[in-house]
Nucleic acid binder design. Sequence first.
DNA 1: GTGAAAGCGCTAACAT
DNA 2: ATGTTAGCGCTTTCAC
Lengths: 340, 340
Amino acid sequence: MNKKTTIYDIARALGVTVSTVSRALNNVPTISEATRKLVLDKAKELNYSVNKLASSLSSGKSNTIGVIVPTMQIHFFAEAVHSIEKELKKHNYSLLLYQSNESFEDEVNGVKTLLEAQVDGIIASLSLETQETQHFQEVINQRKCLVIFDRTHKDIPAPVVKLDDFKAGYLATQHLLEQGYKNIAFITTDKEIAIFQDRFHGFEAALKDAQISPQKDFIIRGDLSIEAGIKGTEQILKSVIQPDAFIGGDDFTAVGIIQALKTANIAIPATGVIGFANQTFSSFITPTLSSIDQQANKMGEECAKLFLKMVKQKSPYEAIEQIVLDPILIKRKSTNRIDK
Amino acid sequence: MNKKTTIYDIARALGVTVSTVSRALNNVPTISEATRKLVLDKAKELNYSVNKLASSLSSGKSNTIGVIVPTMQIHFFAEAVHSIEKELKKHNYSLLLYQSNESFEDEVNGVKTLLEAQVDGIIASLSLETQETQHFQEVINQRKCLVIFDRTHKDIPAPVVKLDDFKAGYLATQHLLEQGYKNIAFITTDKEIAIFQDRFHGFEAALKDAQISPQKDFIIRGDLSIEAGIKGTEQILKSVIQPDAFIGGDDFTAVGIIQALKTANIAIPATGVIGFANQTFSSFITPTLSSIDQQANKMGEECAKLFLKMVKQKSPYEAIEQIVLDPILIKRKSTNRIDK
DNA sequence: GTGAAAGCGCTAACAT
DNA sequence: ATGTTAGCGCTTTCAC
């Protein structure tokens, strides 16, 4: 309990030098099996535990990775972090967690903090506020491995893991069309965030391919939330022509849509509703909500693998990869008009 | 970009020594404003960034805390970690995250890893498998700050932050009784985990105080899950006497109960249902589910504060605190029999 | 196969 | 107010 045992203590007890102990502890091949065993036994006997700060400082490798996400309160990010940690742990990496709380300033600070902690790399998803990306450039300049996922930014010359959000929007729309819905409303955000815009563009493309021209009154760009879904639906229902299906920019908005439809006594899935993200609650609400799964776990796993691949290369940025995952359509009752 | 700037570079550029630079950088009072400014400017000019590994190694304080939770896939833990990180960040602590994945072996390994990383303390919630607690004793032996939350264990002589789960069970039951329900069923787990057992004991106590003797057939101890809720309900409904209310050991089980009741064409809240944990989905399902909130954020915050308090004391374990938070009853439609 | 010794970048007495 | 100088515990190159 007193002073912590160091490799010097082991060396002294064994009458060898610290380099021998270090070699034994690190499985360096140029050491005899006999002394290795001797060292290992003595280490256990003395209840030795490495000081990673010292070894990291000395070796220049911390075996720690930093992860920056907007907030763990968003289920998607919690899932992604779960998978990242799980995967990286297998390869003896530790994970320093930093939440930007959707603040640009915090994000910049996060990068700084992680860099000071000498992480071997950073896996990040951007805050809603982030426009400039100089702070991430600094990570690359220091030759540390950087991977950006989900909330990406075109100005960051680093590998990316994301979902094909255009396809997600296309899939959702196509599904509605296949179910016989024709007048589709879309309630989403006006913010310039790629994933949301891409979803919307996918929607437009699917309509175009089906030779349907979208109705202006049916498109609302404001916020994403239950309230936004309610308000948006109420507004759209005032139109002369009524939509026969609604797409919510995310599942929360879709829940709002469902609530507003119920209030207006409009039956679902006679009128269809679909969302994005496949939140946990989506399969529990009534009717169960069709959605597009974001593949949070797969995304986290890919991030981790990409990072591991990068650290292995001498020049991590020689070939910048872009991993685009396929969205998965989850069909549930809220759009089940024709199947029985 | 080449070699990283160190305090030696700054010292050399300014013709002073490293101690001066160190002092200036760390706001040590015994230094003239003039040189401090000089150093700070030069540091910025040279794009200096501290190496925390070095300062931690040298000072013996890492300003890093380790957090061990079963899994971030459980919303409660994601919320708790969110709050811990948010609170600790204010005080310049970084957070190393480790998931035990409900495995005892992983948990032991987590403690080892975090200790090797020289964290200043550990905040942990136990895995379902954990029976022995020697690994946590080691944390205490090393005089590092340990805080256990939610999933606690009586053998660990460390401060604890938890919910009053007995009261939670009592509150839920009392609420049902107040709403006029009299024959209450309880579907929960048979595992010996304090929080679940405490909830059940609270239930028993509330019945006893109301001078109602619980019906044996109405108590099912198996698993906690939607399926368990469905199966349990189906079984209970076979009884001659039918319950007029159900308590699910957690919200998932309660969802299963609701589904089974719907299938059996039993109206809710004529028959009442309540759960525990106040999951996100609980307010979205139909009918909205009454539940007992676990105060994840408050719990995380209290853990962080307790930790900060401990590190300030020279002997962190002189007075072992136990913070017990009050459960909060969330009344929703699933138990709203008499209010309008 | 093992030893000697120079760092890694910073802190913190102890001097001056 | 600033300089000197030992470390912190480990890795790693160069000898032997």
